[in-house]
Amino acid sequence: MSTLEIKDLRVSIATDDGAKEILKGVDLTVRTGETHAIMGPNGSGKSTLAYAIAGHPKYEITSGSVTLDGQDLLALTVDERARAGLFLAMQYPVEVPGVSMSNFLRSAATAVRGEAPKLRTWVKEVKGAMSDLDIDSDFAERSVNEASPAARRSATRCCSSRCCSRSSPSSTRPTPASTSTRCASCPRA
């Protein structure tokens, strides 16, 4: 059992007119197995909450705390938070030109598991995961998040599956993207 606990979270972003407070004291507790949907009109701070927890540099946390099983997430770097088990499914993930999906997944898996996966079993594992998720095997050789929105969502699904979030107890997503409910509801695939 894991618990993600957000307490009185206040978050600002820098604008031309100075810092603007977006989140004004958010409290939320999410336990393993629970699915929470955060709803609200445009600009109400749904994405800000997700990005702030993940550690996006654009957002400044002015007060409050976020803990995962008691561990202070806000003291961790973005990659440390991810390795602690936080997974942000992005609505519009950026393209990383020239970095192939397979290279990216292996780098992520290496970081998450603490050692590089053995090549022979790794290829099998990725193929298995991609086939389970009905992702065309061509995607492995494409650049990360290159081209179509469908491909981007595939990248998210593949990444949030067992390949590189073995221990993801918590998955947050700014907006439910149409086809990939699988990783939101079941990050461990």
């Binding site: 550690g55 770097t77 990659d79 991810a82 990383v96 020239g98 970081a111 990360v144 590189c164």
Partner: peptide, 23 residues
């Protein structure tokens, strides 16, 4: 941010991006 949010440490992520750039 994207690469780090998948657990990849910053120095590795930078190397990936530059390697991709020259790929």
């Amino acid at each position: 941010f994207y690469l780090q949010s998948r657990g990849i440490p910053e120095d590795v992520a930078r190397r990936l991006v530059v390697r991709g750039f020259f790929g």
